[in-house]
Nucleic acid binder design. Structure first.
Length: 408
RNA sequence: GCGUCGGUGGUAGAGUGGUCAAUUACAACAGACUGUAAAUCUGUCGCCCAUUGGGCUACGCAGGUUCGAAUCCUGCCCGGCGCA
């Protein structure tokens, strides 16, 4: 994998560039489409490609459980298996440490509000006895399968081994994504673990020949704490094997309070080496994309557009609409005026409303095409605005419209 | 005509003397969703005020029994089934 910066936007950390992988290029900044179980839910690869997506991110934990990493390997690797010929990535399973662990059964999500009850606890308490499917040990994480209850112990080496079998172009170190509700003591402890695991991932990766074709990104954690974030950025970016091998790029992970996200990203990206790509894991609402790019992020992935699409919420430049609202039954306009996606070029809001009310599968497909096009294309337009030196103008104009509280 | 079973909120369908404005599901109306435990979840869902709460009208129609009836009795109307 190689990364080239084409243009930097002065006065900010923003840059436009391109990543070369064995399966093609990714022009950055880029919005990577999520295909957790080797499928972007409801879409064929042709549809993924024609909406403009450049790469697909799948998940180690999910594919390990089903259908199994060996099987994917036998089939010729992730891309071959799912018939996606472009670049692929796999997340390490680190997010599942959070979503199936501390966040299991709770209302905690990847991004919380600073006023969230979970953050407002008068005192921290130990809830490690609460039901959860993932438990952190010193050596790795034990998972109780959400599919059949079977037990699995994932170590850093195991995660990399699975990711080697899956064979994506870019893979991630196994980390511990922490809850934003954890106290400083726990965040520091978890960060030490994430660093130790990163080291083991890096060592294991470079001991295998897969390291010649697959790139490994290290993940920065540290929660909401400036000192921890900066420490993590330094540790991960300076980490080397005995032979001097480093991470090929970086992920910025964690569960954020929305209000803290910008500062956290900035702290980190001011430290990470400029010449390597940075991926802001799991983030991708429009405001976040502008924020991330302005603060030096090259890659995003986010399930929100696809999930929202399946649940009937569609993106427009004037904000979201819920296609299930009564008024759309007789609205014969496009989902979004001026949108060039397949769904907008061929169907009306009224038709989408009908499909959703009838619970027809095509509704999910058309909505997903639109929402993913919206996010992918938004980042492409931001990229172009960097190349044209019109970033601030484009951002201000977009956000002004997007946040209009008026009719959509 | 006789017998029999049944008529409950937009729909289906619980309830069979007080804890019933009435379980539940669907529909309807809104909301949420950020490295996918998610084609999911949450709220509202007789009318009128209200902050907790209160008032009113309601379980085919009309009477009745009872302190109290969706629930019991009588008659009527409507529907299914059986026998003529």
């Amino acid at each position: 994998m190689q990364f080239k910066i084409e243009k930097k936007l002065s006065g900010t950390l923003a840059r436009a560039g391109r990543i070369e992988t064995p399966h093609g290029e990714i022009e950055t900044p880029a919005f990577i489409v999520v295909g957790t179980k080797a499928t972007v839910k409801s879409l064929t690869p042709e549809q993924i490609s024609s909406l403009g997506a450049q790469a697909v991110l799948a998940n180690t934990y999910h594919l390990y459980l089903q259908p199994g990493a060996e099987l994917v390997e036998q089939s010729g690797g992730l891309g071959k298996f799912m018939n996606w010929s472009g670049p692929t990535m796999t997340d390490s399973g680190g997010f599942q440490v959070f979503s199936l662990g501390a966040a299991y059964g709770k209302e905690l999500s990847k991004v919380v509000k600073i006023t969230d009850p979970a953050l407002m606890l008068p005192e921290r308490f130990d809830d490690s006895d609460a039901p959860r499917l993932a438990r952190v040990g010193s050596d790795g994480v034990s998972f109780k399968s959400h599919l059949d209850g079977s037990l699995h112990y994932i170590t850093p080496e195991k995660s990399i081994e699975i990711q080697h079998q899956l064979g994506a172009d870019i893979i991630f170190a196994f980390d511990e994504c922490t809850s934003p509700a954890e106290d400083l003591r726990y965040q520091a402890e978890a960060l030490d673990r994430t660093h130790a695991w990163a080291r083991r991932c890096l060592d294991y990766h470079h001991a295998q020949k897969n390291s010649q074709t697959q790139a490994l990104f290290g993940i920065v954690q540290g929660g909401r704490e400036e000192a921890l974030r900066k420490q993590s950025a330094r540790v991960i970016s300076e980490m080397k094997t005995e032979a001097g091998k480093e991470f090929d790029g970086f992920g910025i992970g964690g569960s954020f309070a929305k209000e803290d996200m910008q500062t956290a990203v900035k702290w980190v990206n001011e430290i990470l080496p400029e010449e390597k790509p940075r991926h802001l894991l799991g983030i991708g609402e429009p405001e976040d994309l502008f924020m991330g790019i302005e603060n030096g992020v090259d890659l995003f992935d986010c399930v929100a557009p696809a999930r929202m699409a399946r649940n009937g919420t569609l993106q427009t430049k004037f904000g979201r609409i819920n296609i299930l609202n009564a008024k759309f039954q007789t609205d014969f306009n496009k989902i979004e005026s001026d949108c060039e996606c397949y769904s907008c070029k061929n169907y009306t809001r009224a038709y989408l409303a009908h499909l959703f009310r009838g619970k027809e599968m095509l509704g999910a497909t058309l909505a997903t095409i639109h929402n993913l096009y919206f996010s992918v294309n938004l980042v492409k337009k931001i990229r172009q605005s960097i190349l044209d030196d019109k970033f601030a103008e484009f951002r201000d104009n977009f956000l002004k419209n997007y946040n209009l509280p008026t009719s959509r």
